[in-house]
Design a protein around this nucleic acid. Structure first.
Lengths: 107, 107
DNA sequence: TTTTAATATTGCAATATTACGATGATATAT
DNA sequence: ATATATCATCGTAATATTGCAATATTAAAA
C-alpha cells in the first residue's frame, strides 16, 4: 500500500527513520554539506552548485527545513539561512547512539 | 521523474544516501536494533517482534542485507544471521564524519 | 511604478516504496 | 514419504518520491 505503518513503531524509531529519510537523497547530502561548510549564511547559488532545477532544489530544502536542520529567514527575495547547530548535534547524537547500541557478544 | 539523478553526485554522497535510505524506515530501525541486541545469531520470530507480515519483513531484511549490514546464512528453513560489525562500524563512522564536518564559524 | 532577481507553489509524469496474499522452495520432524 | 515450519519470490494495489515546466510570489533596484 506504499504507506508505512508508523503506528507499529516507537516514537524514537520513527524520529530516527524520519531523520534518515532526509539524508537518504544525495542531493540533500550535498546541499547540507555545502551549507555546513560556508562561513556565513548562504543567500543563493545552490542551484548552480547542485545542478538540479530550481523547483527541485526548493523541494529538497523544504524537506531539510521540516526536520529543523536550517535556521534563518526564508521569505522574500534572498534566502538567508544556515545549519541549526543544535539540531545538527542532536541528530548526530541520535545516529551515534543508535550505532553504539550493539551487543558486542554477538557472533 | 521519480528517478534520482545519482550521476550528479559524488560516490561518497551516494553511498551515504544509500545507507541513510536503509535507515529511513522505522521497521528497519526496529529490526536492526532487535538483531543488534541479541546475544547470538537470530533464527526466527522477527515477524512477531515487528508486527508486519512475513513477506514484508523479508523485503526489509533484503534492503538491510544489500548494504552489507548482515552476515550469516540465509538459505534453508531457519535463518541464522547477525549484524556485520565491521560494516556497522564503517557506517557509524560515515555518519559521524558527515556530521562532524560542519563549519563552527557559521552563524 | 515597472523591472528584475530569487525563491515558492502548482501540476503532472515517471519511477520507487511499502505492504500483503498467494505461492514456491527448503529443511526438519513425524 | 508426508507433513510442517520457515523463509523467499511473485504479483499487485496503494501511496510516496523525484524532477521539472509553468507560473506565482516577494522584495529590492531602476
Amino acid at each position: 500500500m506504499g504507506v508505512s505503518k508508523t503506528q507499529l513503531f516507537s516514537v524514537s524509531h520513527n524520529e530516527l527513520a524520519n531523520a534518515a529519510k532526509v539524508l537518504s537523497h544525495p542531493a540533500r547530502i550535498a546541499i547540507l554539506e555545502y551549507i555546513s561548510k560556508q562561513d556565513n549564511c548562504i543567500c543563493t547559488d545552490l542551484v548552480d552548485v547542485i545542478g538540479l532545477a530550481q523547483p527541485t532544489i526548493s523541494q529538497h530544502l523544504n524537506e531539510i527545513k521540516k526536520i529543523g536542520l536550517l535556521k534563518g529567514t526564508f521569505e522574500g527575495k534572498n534566502l538567508c539561512y544556515c545549519i541549526d547547530r543544535e539540531r545538527w548535534a542532536a541528530l548526530q547524537n541520535a545516529f551515534n547512539t543508535f550505532f553504539s547500541n550493539i551487543n558486542q557478544n554477538c557472533c
